[in-house]
Write a protein that binds this DNA or RNA. Structure first.
Length: 108
DNA sequence: CAGCTGACTTGGG
DNA sequence: GCCCAAGCCAGCT
C-alpha cells in the first residue's frame, strides 16, 4: 500500500478522544491535500481490519456522511460517548471539536 | 492493463 | 443557505 495510506491510518489513529478531523484534513496531513476520498476508502477497508477510530472522522461540514444507517447511528453514539455534543442531524461543532493542525490549504 | 468507485471538497449559480 | 458540476487519487474489479 502507499505510504499515504499508512499515514492516514496513523493520523486517524492519533486523533485524540473527544476530537474529530475532516477527511480533507486527514488527507492534507497525510501528504495528499486532494486525497480526501482515499481517506474514505481507507477508513472503509481499514476500519474493519484495524481498530481505527473511524468515527472521529467527519466531512467538512462537521457532519456524519455515512450512508449506512447502522454505522451512522453508531458513530453518533461513539462520538457522544467521547463527550461530543451531537445535533439532531448527526452534526457537531467543528470549531470546538476539530483537531487543530497545520491543515490549512492556501487556496487564495 | 483500463475503468469505475467513493463515509469528500471546493467553486459557482 | 441550498443545489449542481468538476476535480481528486488510491484501491478494487
Amino acid at each position: 500500500m502507499e505510504a499515504f495510506t499508512q499515514r492516514v491510518i496513523e493520523i486517524v489513529g492519533s486523533i485524540p478522544e473527544g476530537r474529530v478531523m475532516t477527511y480533507g484534513q486527514v488527507a492534507r496531513n497525510a501528504g495528499s491535500p486532494r486525497a480526501a476520498r482515499q481517506v474514505v476508502r481507507i477508513l472503509h477497508s481499514m476500519s474493519k481490519k484495524y481498530k481505527l477510530p473511524w468515527h472521529r472522522v467527519v466531512n467538512a461540514k462537521g457532519e456524519i456522511s455515512i450512508q449506512d444507517d447502522a454505522s451512522y447511528e453508531m458513530q453518533i453514539l461513539l462520538l457522544q460517548t467521547e463527550g461530543i455534543e451531537m445535533a439532531e442531524r448527526g452534526q457537531l461543532d467543528l470549531i470546538r471539536y476539530q483537531v487543530k493542525a497545520q491543515d490549512r490549504a492556501p487556496k487564495t
